[in-house]
């Protein structure tokens, strides 16, 4: 056995990927846009697939969101997870159709719903990869969400790196100090052990976090968080520019085109 430092597919990599995704550090087209317009853009693509049964339209919509995901610079971890889910869903659809005595039509119907789901997921990935926490929470505020929710979203993001760090340290501690054992068949025993550590790690993490959150809550109180007078100031920071309008207009045109080609493919 030889250990080495790996840059991909390691715990550290997963941590970095999640941070990059959450904080939109890769940039991308939608990261420059106004949060409200991104959310609007997302809702448009999230609703559109459910309004049609035309296979051609669904495929066209899927292509639109796939291009968007590329423009949003979605990272390899999220994209990889999406692809794994996407592929297994398709396999499952065929398997189900075949086992329950369905025919090509049943399979096609299942593929259709999977493709719709994939379109919506890709759109949400593209949108939320592009919104950093501050933008997202301000955007939610502007759309009328309660302040507590908007703050909760941004605070959740703030806690994420801290919890990762804490989990990493506690998990390492458990691994170092608990009884070592054999890897077992296909490393299954090691995997089982790691699973146990992950569960055990919650006890110290909860207690450590609970202690630190007390300071956070007190400090929120002293900094007027409960005074709730900042809503307008926050929203006033948002502004919709030419880019926002262009992106939404182009997407809207593409969606309309997708709906237009549906009947055309059927009849033509």
């Amino acid at each position: 056995m030889s250990r080495k430092t790996r840059d991909v597919l390691s715990v550290e990599w997963v941590k970095l990927e999640l941070i990059r995704t959450a904080y939109a550090t890769r940039g991308g087209l939608f990261a420059k846009m106004d949060a409200r317009m991104v959310i609007g853009w997302y809702l448009m693509l999230a609703v559109a697939p459910w309004l049609t049964h035309s296979f051609a339209t669904i495929i066209a919509l899927f292509v639109i969101t796939a291009v968007s995901a590329a423009l949003a610079r979605v990272g390899p971890l999220v994209l990889g997870l999406f692809l794994v889910g996407f592929v297994t869903d398709f396999l499952y659809a065929f398997l189900a159709a075949w086992m329950f005595g369905g025919d090509a039509n049943t399979a096609l119907a299942l593929v259709e719903i999977n493709l719709k789901l994939a379109t919506v997921s890709l759109a949400s990935i593209a949108a939320f990869v592009s919104l950093d926490p501050e933008k997202l929470s301000t955007g939610l505020l502007a759309l009328g969400a309660p302040e507590l929710l908007a703050f909760g979203v941004s605070y959740g993001y703030r806690m994420m790196p801290i919890l990762f760090e804490e989990f990493g340290v506690v998990f390492t501690g458990l691994r170092l100090r608990s009884a070592p054992g054999a890897r077992g068949f296909l490393g299954l025993r090691a995997l089982w052990r790691w699973g146990t550590y992950a569960v055990q790690a919650f006890y110290p993490i909860f207690l450590n976090t609970a202690k630190s959150v007390r300071t956070t809550v007190e400090s929120l109180e002293t900094r007027g968080f409960t005074a709730r007078q900042g809503r307008e100031l926050r929203i006033a920071r948002l502004s919709i520019g030419a880019l926002d309008v262009t992106v939404v207009a182009v997407t809207l045109a593409a969606v309309i085109a997708a709906f237009a080609i549906g009947p055309w493919v059927m009849t033509g």
């Binding site: 926490p133 501050e134 630190s212 400090s219 100031l233």
Partner: peptide, 29 residues
């Protein structure tokens, strides 16, 4: 103004600028 011993837990916003503006913003200044 109160700065805590475990000041890291006092920081609640993603970026430094948001953090520093957080108080005045909450009071609608």
């Amino acid at each position: 103004g109160y700065v805590y011993q475990d000041f890291q837990n006092q920081l609640v916003r993603p970026r430094v600028r948001d953090e520093v503006e957080f108080g005045p913003m909450n009071f609608g200044m």
